[in-house]
Amino acid sequence: MSLLEVEGLEVHYGGIRAVKGVDLVVDEGELVCLIGANGAGKTSTLKAICGLLPSHSGSVRYSGQEISKKPVYELPRRGLVLVPEGRGVFPQLTVAENLAMGAYARRDGDVARDLERMHGLFPRLAERRSQTAGTLSGGEQQMLAIGRALMSRPRLLLLDEPSMGLAPLMVAKILEIVREIARQGVTILLVEQNAKLALEIAGRGYVMESGVLALAADSKSLLADPRVRQAYLGEGAA
C-alpha cells in the first residue's frame, strides 16, 4: 500500500476542466516531483489532494484512507501537510510565532525541541527568530514556510513550487533543504516548474500537461527523455 494514492482525480473550475483524471502514487519515504508548465494543473492537483479545492471526481487515499471528502484542517493531524504556493507565512507574526503555529495540530508538548531542530536546519531563521515574517526575504520566507510545516511532524509533505520567485542561488539552496528533509525520512510530493532541479533531487517524477499526466518515470530517464529536454529543460528542437 502506498502512502498516497490518487486515482482519476478531476478538478473543475466552473466549466473548465483543469485536472482531467490524474493517477499518481507516492510511496513511504519517496521524494516524488510533479513538473509541468504554467497552467498545466499542478497546483490544482495538489490543492485537491489536501482538500483546499473540491475535487470533481476521483479518489485520494492517504495511508489507505479516503480523504477527498475530509475537511482540510484534519489532515495535518494525520501528518499530511501542505506548504502553499506563495509561501503563506503569517506576515505580522514573528518567525518564532510562525513556527509555533505550525505545531498547532499537535497535542504533545514537545514543541520546544522541534523549534531547536528547525533552528538547526535553518540557521537563517534562528538569527531572525524575533523578526516578523513579513520582513524576511523571499527565500527566508520559503524556509519559514517549510520549517513551519515541519513543526507539525508531517509524514507526507506537499510542497507547492518552493522555488517560485527566488533567485537561482536561493532556489538551489531551498531544493537542497528539501532533499535533506527527504533524507530525514519525510515523504515529499514536490510540485515544481523548475524541472531540472526538481528531477535532480527527486527519485521519480510525473510530467503534467494541460490537465493530464503525460509522462511518469524515474528521474534519470525523465532527465534523458528528449520530450522533457525539449519542453522543460530549454533545449531547442533537434
Binding site: 489536501c50 483546499l52 475537511p71 482540510v72 484542517y73 484534519e74 489532515l75 495535518p76 493531524r77 501537510v81 501542505l82 506548504v83 502553499p84 503563506g88 507565512v89 503569517f90 506576515p91 505580522q92 507574526l93 509555533a100 503555529m101 505550525g102 498547532y104 495540530a105 514556510a145 513551519r148 510545516a149 507539525s152
Partner: peptide, 22 residues
Amino acid sequence: GRAWEAIREDETAARAMGINTT
C-alpha cells in the same frame, strides 16, 4: 486566540496548519 490570529493573517495558511477555520 492564536488560531484567530492565524486566520486574520492568512486564512489559507491557517487551514493548511490544521486550524478549523469554519
